[in-house]
């Protein structure tokens, strides 16, 4: 094996995984032989190893030659980059919010606690949020790096949305029946997280067995919500069926919330546990009582939001009926 063969093999080793690697090697060898012949002719003497070395030095390092054949020199190319940034922002925001929410719940659940424990939970929360954000970043990059290589070049238009954009849309009133995809996706993500949370995925012992009786109902409402969201993502537009489903889901949700408000001691911040805490540190009594009311206040806020959602859904449903008449 002469130097040229070794060089060609070395380039082959560094070539990106593409069809026709043998072809590239064959062509490279043929070119190098041609060039060497030219060199020998110019020098007026037969080819030798010194000449080969000179030629290969001119040609460049095998790594560089191989990388010039790479059709995807980017991990995530310019066509995907704006879409990548958009998804990354959403994912990171969701991850950080969820991690902080979990840390807050943990801090409340570890109640009563000392200042050092509290600090520890906060620091842990920061650490977890950071590592979750880094992991999420890595996952998004992997997904887009694969898309970059799998999607054919012709798909570029789908991401830039240049053809579908109409300047007149700036002046138009937004169509109330158009679904907002971003909102739907966020809703699905948060509902799935809620389901995981309720069904004990995060191992946060803050609910009592009283609360557990409601879990099947809440699960049903959440699942129905997810199914509706996915349906809407496909139809891209609200229709009568979607509106009716939304009204029913919101109504059932309100019923469940009302029942939860009427059930005492659904979380572990019970009167007894708080009383014992007040005994340990009398001065923190107000804080403890506030924590006790947090559950009720949270449920009332949820009820108000559900009420607004139900009213909106009913209004839109009636509007559809009016239009069709």
């Amino acid at each position: 094996m002469n130097l040229i063969d070794k060089y060609v093999a070395e380039v082959g080793k560094h070539l990106p995984l593409l069809k026709g690697r043998a072809d590239v090697e064959k062509e490279l060898k043929s070119t190098l032989e041609d060039m060497l012949e030219d060199k020998a002719e110019q020098a007026g003497r037969p080819r030798d190893e010194a000449m080969e070395i000179e030629l290969l030095k001119e040609y460049g390092s095998p790594q560089n030659i191989a990388s010039s054949y790479n059709p995807h020199p980017y991990l995530i190319g310019p066509r995907m980059f704006p879409f990548f940034l958009m998804v990354l922002k959403i994912v990171l925001a969701v991850v950080v919010v969820v991690m902080f929410a979990l840390a807050s719940i943990k801090a409340v659940a570890a109640y009563p606690l000392f200042a050092t424990d509290f600090m520890q939970i906060i620091m842990q929360g920061f650490g977890n949020a950071l590592s979750a954000a880094v992991a999420a970043f890595g996952n998004v990059v992997i997904v887009f790096a694969i898309l970059e290589r799998v999607l054919p070049d012709k798909e570029i238009g789908d991401f830039s949305n240049e053809k579908g954009w109409d300047p007149a849309s700036l002046a138009r009133q937004p169509d109330p029946d158009m679904v907002k995809r971003g909102e739907l996706i966020a809703e699905v993500v948060f509902t799935v997280l809620g389901l995981a949370f309720l069904n004990g995925l995060f191992n946060l012992p803050i609910f009592t067995s009283e609360f557990s009786k409601f879990i099947p109902w809440i699960n049903a409402v959440f699942l129905a919500d997810i199914v509706l969201d996915i349906y809407l993502l496909f139809t891209a537009k609200w229709n009568a069926l979607g509106r009716v489903a939304k009204v029913i889901i919101e109504a059932v949700g309100i019923a469940v919330t009302v029942m939860l408000i009427r059930t005492p001691d659904i979380t572990l911040f019970t009167s007894e546990s708080l009383l014992s805490f007040i005994k340990i540190s009398g001065e923190a009594g107000n804080v403890a009582l506030a924590a006790h009311y947090t559950t009720s206040i949270t449920l009332i806020v949820i009820l108000i939001i559900q009420g607004i959602e139900l009213a909106k859904a009913l209004y839109r449903l009636l509007k559809i009926n009016y239009k069709t008449k």
């Binding site: 026709g20 072809d23 590239v24 064959k26 062509e27 490279l28 043929s30 070119t31 032989e33 041609d34 040609y59 460049g60 560089n64 030659i65 010039s68 054949y69 059709p71």
Partner: peptide, 30 residues
């Protein structure tokens, strides 16, 4: 290092055609 990748790209876009042939000195050329 610019020309050969460019030739491959133009061929993959359907703008060029290529085939291997042995014309002289028994050296195959594309």
């Amino acid at each position: 290092s610019t020309l050969y990748p460019l030739l491959r790209r133009l061929e993959s876009q359907g703008l060029l055609q290529s085939d291997w042939r042995i014309v002289d000195e028994a050296r195959p050329r594309r």
